[in-house]
Nucleic acid binder design. Structure first.
Lengths: 264, 264
DNA sequence: TAGTGGTCTAGACCACTTC
DNA sequence: AAGTGGTCTAGACCACTAA
């Protein structure tokens, strides 16, 4: 037999799914359920904690426990890197993406800091350096309105970016056209990319920084950007609040039996 | 000031990170910490629950609480769909992938059931049907050894698969070469795909089916497979234990300013 | 000030595993 | 039988929010 708190949680989850409690609506107060004989305060609290961990509700002191509204997943594809956007216009890739999904961009929705640091193992491997070699790290925290959605930290080899706008630590996107435009102007035209994704539980620091509700996972994205000759000009690590993004990729079915000359 | 259970959890997490407790090793028993004055049993228990939710440890009755060993992420790329594997050989796509990563395949690591059901909204949308139209659902639970790693459910339009081996509900992969080979033999050669991924918290049912440790997220994958003329021949939904997989995609930077004739 | 969720305790008891 | 984590209670008290 399932524990009492689990049964209570399941019962409430069922009611939420049925629409008995709609998004934004308050669940019964803990003390109310205690009076109704659903168990002691700890037991009811455990049930509420479970619902929170399952992403169904959020609790806050002074207020109460409300059903969490489902923000639709923002679908992001490779179009967000379209050269036309950052080379010919002055859109920054991530802003272009925002515009494409009908969300406005406001100043102050991205903070940025640039520092010279020692490469971690992952960064060194991506850039073909030794761990401990110096790289520039450009860290951004991106928000939508008040709510942070993801962090994105780009790592560059010093010889690629020294003297460019990228290492100018002024807030906001790296000037007109963004980081790819700066690299382009410096003679490094990006050509292809590799993206690697996996999901995990956030660290306590990430929970705080991204203001994640209890139980929300993060998706970590590793993006390696190459020029046509295979030089890595940027390696970036993003940490995304899972409930806000969906990644989409289109590709041809590979056929190694055919000797094709199309590169990838 | 952070709650007592949070401080205790952080302290233990620190020790785990430092290697004071190595993977597989037991943490102090709850009652031991109670005797040491770390708090009441409930408080210490709360700390252990937090560590479990953060993916650091697993607890079990009768045994104790041990540091969770980190299984390396299995990187999966689009090579697993290589036509040569399932068309010319008799490998099944997912087995080919297993072989490539140095893991053996044993019979019985995949269970399968095929049923005719009414399409859900997502399935109907992918196949261009109306919700409620009939589709074949081929559901698999894939394990590695004893441990389930993911579920994968393929949805087919009846006219594409009726009379083929796919609708024969014998266990194991859909015969020599797998599902894509069957479609190929039936005259539907797959040409390109779209994969969409997002992470979320598992449902209680998924937690049970995939035997997920507390706090482990899942990655949901939606795969749409097309023939060259754009017909959707398969739509599949996978639910993956997040700690076991990493997805990798390579692509060219798009350039909408260039009018290219390469399809995608 | 009143009401919300969150923390904490002390102790009883339960479920499971190992010996 | 002994030892593990898990559940549950009753009640005190804390932290935060709103009127």
């Amino acid at each position: 037999m399932a524990p009492k708190w689990r049964e209570l949680a399941d019962q409430l989850a069922e009611q939420i799914k049925n629409g008995d409690y709609i998004p934004g609506q308050q669940l019964p107060h803990i003390r109310t359920l205690v009076e109704n004989g659903e168990g002691s305060k700890s037991t009811v609290h455990a049930a509420y904690k479970a619902l929170e961990a399952e992403g169904l509700v959020t609790s806050s002191r002074g207020h109460g426990t409300v059903v969490r509204p489902q923000t639709p997943l923002k679908r992001i594809g490779i179009e967000r890197y379209d050269k036309a956007k950052w080379r010919d216009g002055d859109e920054v890739a991530f802003i272009a993406d925002r515009v494409a999904s009908g969300r406005a961009y406001r100043r102050g929705e991205q903070t940025q800091s640039v520092t010279l640091i020692e490469a971690t193992a992952a960064v060194a491997a991506a850039h073909g350096l030794a761990p401990g070699d110096q790289v520039y790290a450009r860290a951004r925290l991106v928000k939508e309105g008040e709510q942070p959605t993801h962090t994105l930290t780009s790592y560059y080899r010093p010889e690629h970016v020294e003297g460019t706008r990228i290492v100018d630590p002024s807030p906001g996107p790296a000037g007109r056209g963004g980081g790819f435009r700066v690299l382009y102007d410096a003679g490094y035209e990006i050509d292809h990319m590799r993206e690697e994704l996996f999901a995990r539980v956030p660290t306590p620091e990430e929970t705080k920084l991204l203001q994640l509700p209890a139980g929300e996972p993060v998706v970590e994205l590793h993006r390696t950007t190459y020029t046509a000759d295979g030089t890595v000009v940027e390696f970036a690590i993003g940490v995304h609040a899972a409930s806000r993004f969906m990644w989409a990729y289109d590709f041809k079915i590979p056929d190694s039996a055919q000797e094709v000359g199309e590169g990838q």
